[in-house]
Simulated scan of single mutants.
Amino acid sequence: MVSIATWNINSVRLRADQVERFLRQEAPDVLCLQEIKTEEKHFPHAVFEAAGYAHRAVHGQKGYHGVATVSRIPLREVSRHDWQDNGEARHVGVELLGPGQGLIVENVYIPAGGDIPDREANPKFGQKLDFLGRMTRWAEALDRPTLIVGDFNIAPLDCDVYDHKALLKVVSHTPIEVETLGQFRDAHGWVDLGRQFIPAPQRNYSWWSYRSYWRDKDQGRRLDHMWASPDVATQARGHRIVEETRKWDQPSDHVPLITEFDL
């Protein structure tokens, strides 16, 4: 069995102790982090080395964005796609070389898209849709067993948000974003592992705003995802959300997801 986790950590240096706690508690074989907000030279390598995660692929930048995949399993970095088309660090792909040998794990941080769901009024929203378009063209050519995970910044289903009607005009749940993500899904026949194991309409949130979480009204959204090639999806044996991390001291606004595979 191989367990793979994903977590938007919202600054790996600020929350290195929380990552260490999570690794000690859940012990995934592979952890994909997004929004690490640091260059590779400042990445807390010693924390992961001490925890037994000797294999790392870090694609970072100063103060913003950035992704990193850390592993107890040997791996090799295979790609860094610039789907944002502006040099931002939002993707790293690796191939597992030990258990699960041959599996490609793609770690992605899709842009949030700003506040206004209009390409003309808000260039960031257009960049998000274009990012997804480039990802879709990439997915059409895939021919290897692949898992893509990360912060997609889109809640695709009506039940993936706390109030579907109220959020239809809110970036992350607008019809155009859902449709564009659907085109990406169909380009490779991706299987949404979160909904394979926690079928709709069951609650399955992974993000709560810092501004509203204190109200304890469960105003969540499912923005983080683990999607698999059809052949990889058949090997998935379990999936869970580690929601307790949202209640840790000074937490990320996202929580980790973990899927176990019989590879």
Rank of each mutant, 00 (worst) to 15 (best):
K247Y: 14
H164P: 13
H91E: 14
T146L: 02
G102L: 05
N8T: 04
L142K: 00
I241E: 04
A51C: 13
E40H: 07
K124I: 01
F152Q: 02
L14R: 15
G100R: 05
F22R: 02
P201K: 04
P230K: 11
E140N: 00
A50F: 03
L129E: 02
A68Y: 01
R15W: 04
E49M: 12
G113Y: 05
T69G: 02
V171D: 09
G150F: 07
Q84T: 15
R195K: 08
G52F: 09
H59L: 08
Q18H: 15
A89H: 03
V242Y: 11
P199Y: 04
D216N: 14
D249N: 11
W214N: 12
L263A: 11
P44G: 12
S11G: 08
H164V: 13
P145I: 10
T245M: 09
L14G: 02
L97V: 09
D216F: 03
L96P: 03
W138P: 01
G133M: 00
T234M: 12
F48W: 09
S3D: 01
P230M: 09
V58K: 03
G66R: 07
N107C: 00
S172W: 07
N107L: 01
N107A: 00
L181D: 05
V67R: 08
T174D: 06
F48V: 07
G98E: 09
P199Q: 05
T245Y: 05
R137M: 01
A139F: 05
R144I: 06
A233R: 08
E39S: 13
E106D: 12
I198Y: 07
N204M: 13
F125N: 02
K128H: 04
A16S: 15
T180S: 12
Y205H: 08
F261V: 04
S172N: 14
I154H: 06
H225Q: 07
R203W: 07
L147Y: 01
R80P: 04
R134H: 12
H65I: 02
V232F: 02
G114K: 00
G189F: 06
V170D: 13
